[in-house]
Amino acid sequence: DVAKAIINHAVYGKAQNRSYERLALLVYAVGPRLSGSKNLEKAIQIMYQNLREDGLENVHLEPVKIPHWERGEESAVMLEPRIQKMAILGLGSSIGTPPEGITAEVLVVTSFDELQRRAPEARGKIVVYNQPYVNYSSTVLYRVRGAVEAARLGAVASLIRSVTPFSIYSPHTGIQEYQDGVPKIPTACITVEDAEMMSGMASYGARIIIQLKMGAKSYPDADSFNTVAEIIGSKYPEQVVLVSGHLDSWDVGQGAMDDGGGAFISWEALSLIKDLGLRPKRTLRLVLWTGEEQGGVGAFQYYQLHKANISNYSLVMESDSGTFLPSGLQFTGSDKARAIMEEVMRLLQPINITQVFRNGEGTDINYWIQDGVPGASLLDDLYKYFSFHHSHGDTMTVMDPKEMNVAAALWAVVSYVVADMEEMLPRS
C-alpha cells in the first residue's frame, strides 16, 4: 500500500500543507525571482540549505549562465483622443526607449495577417495588437514575435494585448524575441481592456497617440545554478527519474504559482518518500531549474551536461502549469509506456485522479522528451493558471494548500512507482 501511504501522508497526515507553507516562507522572504536578479540567487541559496536540512542526498548546485535583463521604469500614456495612463509590463529582453520616450500614432490590428494587409500604414507607428485569446500556445506568438513583425514594416514600438483568457486590468509579461537583421523596437504588453478600447476607438476613426517610456536594459549573462537533490536508488542508482519545477520567475507578483508551486510539490514528492522511509530502486532526482522563463536556458545547459547518460533516464517530469487541483497526468511516450502509466495512475484512485492525457511536456524537460525519454506533467486548471500567469496576481493568494497536497501526492506516487519498478519505462 505504498501509494495509499503516500496519499494519506500528503493529503491527510503530518505532511499536510507542508509544501504550501514552505513555498510561502520562500516567496515572502525573497519575492519574485527574475533571471539574473539577486532575488533568484538568494532563493537558490535558501533552497540549497532547505534541501540539505531536509536530509536529501547529493544536494548540489550546478553552475550555468542565464540572461540578465532588467525592467527599469516604464509607463504608457494615451495622449489622444483623450489622456489616459495605461498599465503596461515591458516584455523580457525588450530594449528601452530614449529617456524622453517614444510618442507616436497608433495602428491597431487584431492579427499578423491584418498587419500585413495594412503594412504601408505601420511605418513610424506604435503597432497595437488586439489579438483574441485562443489558447496560450497559439496566442503567445503575438507576445514573442509582435515586435519583429512590426519592426519589419518600420514601426517604432509594439504594444501587445496580454496573453490571458481573463483580465481585471492586469498586464501579463513574458519573454519576447528579436531577430537578426530586423531593427529592435521596444515592446510591452498592455491590458486586454486597453487593447479592446483602442481597437474600438480606431473603429470609430479616432486618431490615437501614445507616449511610451521604457527603461529596459539587458546586461551580460549572469551566473546561476540548477539546484539538485536526490534520493539515491537502492538497486540501479545510475538510473534516474527526474522530478522538477523552476525557481526563477518574472519580476511580478511573488512567482508563487509560476513556478513556485511546481518547484515545491517536486521537493515535497521527495520529502514524502523520505518521510515514509522509502528508497526506490532508481535514483529520484529533484532539479529546480533556473532561467526557465528565458526559454529553458538553465535546463538546456543541464541537458548538454547530462545527455551522455540519456539512456539512464526512465522518466522526466516537470510541473509548470499550476498546482491547483490536477485533473490528471499528461504523458508523452510510446503506447506501451502510456499503458504502463495508465496502470500507475490507477494507484491514485483514492483521490480520484487517474486519467492519463497526451502532451506531457515542460520547457525544461522537452530537450529530453524530444530525444525519446518519456515525459510527464500535470494537467491543471489552465483557465485559472493563465488568468494569473506572469501578472502581478501571481502570489500566494492564488495558491491553495489542499490542492497542493493533492498535486504533491500525485507527483510523489508517480515518481516513486516509476523509480521503483523493476524495469525502466519502454521507449519507441
Binding site: 539512456s311 539512464n312 506501451k336 504502463i340 490507477r346 519498478m421 519507441s428
Partner: peptide, 24 residues
C-alpha cells in the same frame, strides 16, 4: 548499463501490471 526496452511483450506487460498493482 541501461535496461530500457524498445517494446514490451504482452506477457511482460502483464507482469508489469501486477507489479504496479502491488503498490496499491
Amino acid at each position: 548499463k541501461a535496461i530500457y526496452r524498445n517494446d514490451v511483450s504482452q506477457s511482460a506487460f502483464q507482469e508489469i501490471k501486477e507489479e504496479i498493482a502491488s503498490y496499491g
